[in-house]
């Protein structure tokens, strides 16, 4: 398994949970627009701060496990982290909010 393969598993979980939340909780276009913008901001922040963290030698990658595509210093696969966070966490919160409690 490569780092991309592992990332794909977690992205798959996040996509499945957000789809389930959309069906179960009737998430609106506005909720999805909010989630998309939040995720886009997180992706941008990740490119900057992941690169700075790598430059600071906080962690090192095994080059052989990577695709080799980098945005500044951040490996493309690392963008799966903000993608999963941005999709999964708001979806989980929506799932935990009972429809009767929605304002």
């Amino acid at each position: 398994m490569s780092y991309l393969g592992l990332a794909t598993v977690f992205v798959g979980i996040a996509v499945a949970v957000s789809a389930w939340a959309t069906v179960r909780r009737g998430l609106t276009i506005r909720w999805w627009a909010t989630t998309a913008l939040t995720t886009a901001i997180l992706l941008g922040l990740t490119v900057v701060f992941d690169s700075l963290m790598i430059a600071a030698d906080l962690f090192r990658f095994d080059e052989a496990s990577l695709l080799g595509v980098r945005l500044w210093r951040a490996p493309l696969e690392d963008l799966a982290w903000p993608l999963v966070a941005g999709l999964l966490l708001p979806s989980l919160r929506a799932l935990l909010t009972r429809p009767t409690e929605a304002p």
């Binding site: 909720w31 627009a33 909010t34 939040t38 997180l42 903000p82 929506a94 929605a102 304002p103």
Partner: peptide, 30 residues
């Protein structure tokens, strides 16, 4: 990372007029 995600989601919702408390629909506030 987890906290910033939820805070940002709330801020974006607030800025877009959705309101941080509004999650699943545009039903009136209880």
């Amino acid at each position: 990372l987890c906290y910033v995600t939820l805070v940002l989601h709330g801020l974006v919702a607030m800025a877009s007029g959705l309101g941080p408390a509004s999650e699943t629909s545009d039903r009136p506030r209880r």
